[in-house]
């Protein structure tokens, strides 16, 4: 490797980060203030945003139609910042079809609406098995689908992100969007789990 004959990139991660922080601040590419600001902005995204979208879709047919047609536009209509991010596609679960989202190549995840990807989403076991053994994988999340419901596994890419619109749980008629949103967590929104009428948050 001509650009790194000494193998500097083999340095331990914490040392590499400290060295790059120093150099990039000096070059005015990334200052400590900018890094702190970006961390704070990233932490504002969380599964609560995706949960609010799903709850809204359960309550409002027009929003549901928009969300299925154009996830990015639906997110933006709720004030979620999507500018400069890859398009968001929304996969509609039905009694006959369940969706499971994976990124086999790495970890592409709808971060704008779900926040940081969970540890398991980035793991080799999840990435490898989702496409070959989805039912075995779901069982490890405590999820058992009804007999006869098909599973469609969707592979995210760096250029297109997916989230799942789960089925509205039975026994939630007349509930407000806020109350419905509390039933949802990140797994429900990528299909490793399915929501029930039991509160999650």
């Amino acid at each position: 490797m001509n650009h790194d004959p000494a193998g500097l990139v083999d340095a331990e991660g914490g040392r590499l980060l400290a060295a790059l922080r120093h150099l990039l601040a000096e070059k005015d590419i990334a200052t400590p203030g900018e890094i702190a600001e970006r961390i704070a902005a990233t932490e504002r995204a969380s599964p609560r945003l995706g949960a609010a979208m799903v709850a809204q879709a359960w309550c409002d047919p027009a929003f549901r139609a928009l969300m299925l047609a154009d996830g990015t536009a639906a997110a933006e209509s709720l004030g979620i910042a999507m500018r400069g991010l890859p398009p968001l596609g929304v996969l509609e679960n039905t009694p006959a079809l369940h969706h499971l989202v994976v990124c086999t190549l790495c970890s592409c995840y709808p971060r704008a609406v779900l926040g940081y990807p969970p540890f398991w989403f980035k793991s080799a076991a999840y990435r490898a098995r989702a496409v070959r053994d989805p039912l075995g994988l779901l069982a490890e999340f405590g999820t058992q689908l009804p007999a006869g419901q098909r599973v469609r596994v969707v592979d995210s890419t760096a250029d297109y992100r997916w989230m799942v619109l789960p089925l509205r749980p039975a026994g939630t008629q007349g509930w407000s969007a806020e109350r419905l949103a509390a039933l949802l967590d990140a797994g429900d929104l990528v299909g490793t789990t399915v929501p029930t009428a039991r509160e999650r948050v």
Partner: peptide, 27 residues
């Protein structure tokens, strides 16, 4: 990887993780 179990437990991100993530976004 077929016989490897998925670690479904939550893992908190470290300061190192968050800083690297933020740096990538800035770049």
């Amino acid at each position: 990887f077929m016989c490897r179990e998925v670690d479904t437990e939550p893992h908190a991100l470290s300061d190192f993780d968050r800083e690297v993530d933020a740096l990538r976004q800035i770049l």
